[in-house]
Amino acid sequence: MTVDYRSQTVLLTGASSGIGAAFAAALAARGSNLVLVARRADRLASMADELRRNYDVRVEAIPFDLSHPAAGIELRKAVADRGVEVTSLINNAAFGTFAPFADADPGRLADEIAVDVAAPVQLTAAFLPQMLSAANGFIISVAGVSAYFPSPRMAVYSAAKAFVLSFTESLWTELRGTGLTAFAVSPGATSTEFTTGMGPEASVLTSGRLRTPEDVVATALAHLERRNPGPSVIDGRANQLGVLMSRLASRRQSAMMMERVLDPNRRSKPTAA
């Protein structure tokens, strides 16, 4: 696909750190205008100023909580009030909880579903008419390798990412021939602030070698620029291999394996003789 980045105005959620910030920098460097959305107003404003100075692109910063029930409608109005027409969308914002489901806070789980599941659907629906009108943009949704596995202690998060993957792959099919490309990118363990606030047991998620946000973005944009991008791409060879191997296992085996992988006490347990 030939991507004219300089003709793009990309709305990017979860833009203030991690993969979102890496997407913002990479797209600004390619000449795209940006609408950055995140909750942290000060950090978002500082980042927008830096991108304007460094790349001479238009950057709008909109502090916004995507857990709002009418997030899509509210954000579309906020964007329209600034005189902006969105041509592309990156659904990146998400957060997780790490605890047995029985111990999780129901209110936090509701917010997690709102941000991780409802918001990508609402934003895609809200901005799809103007993106189809432009007919030269893209929708990238950040799923995750957890979309392919059951994840004990992260039951809602992995289910949310499975939803995002399926939703986006379905969009890919529906949008073929419209000039608007949709696909999901699935990172694995990545060096971001994702585990912040999830408690010390969540450190099991960042054991081993981590990919960087820039790695994930490079994978996504390389996929976008392919002649015929497919409905999804997995970041990193190890993650690709892990997903491939999981498809050879039964659902029972996959669930049991992930129970061991995500057990925060696994390092301290004695091994069998």
Rank of each mutant, 00 (worst) to 15 (best):
R108A: 13
E201R: 14
L248K: 06
N239P: 03
A48I: 05
A29I: 04
G72F: 00
A41W: 02
A38D: 11
S17C: 09
M1H: 14
E85Q: 15
G96S: 15
E85D: 14
L210P: 02
Q240K: 14
G107Q: 14
Q122W: 01
R39P: 09
A28L: 06
V3K: 01
A78C: 09
V156M: 10
P264F: 05
M257W: 08
A21I: 03
L36M: 11
D263N: 15
I234L: 04
A182R: 00
P200K: 08
E74N: 10
A202D: 04
A29H: 08
V79A: 12
A162M: 06
R39F: 06
G179Y: 08
P63L: 12
A99T: 10
A249P: 01
D215R: 05
F167K: 07
N228A: 13
L221W: 10
L123E: 04
P129D: 09
L44I: 06
A61D: 09
R260V: 13
K269S: 13
R260F: 08
L262H: 02
W172F: 11
S17N: 13
A78F: 02
Y5H: 11
E259S: 15
M131A: 08
G199I: 13
P264N: 06
A182M: 08
L34M: 07
G18Y: 00
V3A: 06
T206D: 13
V121T: 12
